[in-house]
Amino acid sequence: MITISHLTKTYRGGVKAIDGVSLEIGTGMFGLVGPNGAGKTTFMRIIAGLLKPTAGEISVFGNNLRAYAGKQAAKAQLGYLPQDLGLYPNLNAYEFLDYMAILKGVTSSADRKRQIDMLLEQVRLTDAAKRPLKTYSGGMKRRVGIAQALLGNPRLIIVDEPTAGLDPEERIRFRNLLADAAAGRTIILSTHIVEDISQSCNDLAAMRGGKVIYRGSPQDLIAQARGSVWMITTQAERPNGGLTIVSTLQMANGVQYRVLGNPDGRYDASPVEPSLEDGYMWLMAQANDQLARLAASSPKRETA
């Protein structure tokens, strides 16, 4: 169990990346979504013990991350795949995984070999295992990164944009791999690909401006958007009037728009069943509206 209470992170220069977040994350897949700059990466780096929070408490499996010993104990149970992953170009995949396994505390060489062989098989790199990493494609490097995150049988796995750069087949394979690994573990998955969350997570949080603006199941988020998603086919101009266009498709009889909002009578709009992506867009549109209302209602400074 990961318990986060009133977590705040302010960077030098006063940029508040995390603003009073409180969460509890249990076992299973936990999705984290949000726009760029929402604070997702900072949040995950704090849980991984890479960054120190400015305020608040965080406990990973009972280990307080503000204490050095607690942080080291939590790291011993962590598998981490950063967004911007780097590898040693002169090592091959087997050597790199062996190296990382030792650092993670897998001291038995037989155990290391067994784990590495299994993971290489799972990420389909067995044949390329002895090639230097500098000869790997972007997707292959990503797969090595995924394998190293799973090394050492960690109880907590944090993966930041794990499927970026993977082809669709690999993406699905990896999603399934994570879902299989989630039994008895906590996996925090941050991604911009909402499809990945909808296919693998039963619990998610959406962040914006350093705050958690939604916490619940993907189904609940979808349900919130129900009645707000429409399909409009038109040969006229793009739909407007407070509508958010989610997708655009050129058709023989005009342009088909998938929109969020409440279209007026000008459009021949038909309701459609929302997806998680619609739910996410609906959530962000609500947050935008709220921000706009707040800005409008805040007292203006009197001018002389």
Partner: peptide, 15 residues
Amino acid sequence: RQYRIRELFNSAPVS
């Protein structure tokens, strides 16, 4: 740092 490997080291229980 240039190989962007520091983050992995820091996430492992290496003092």
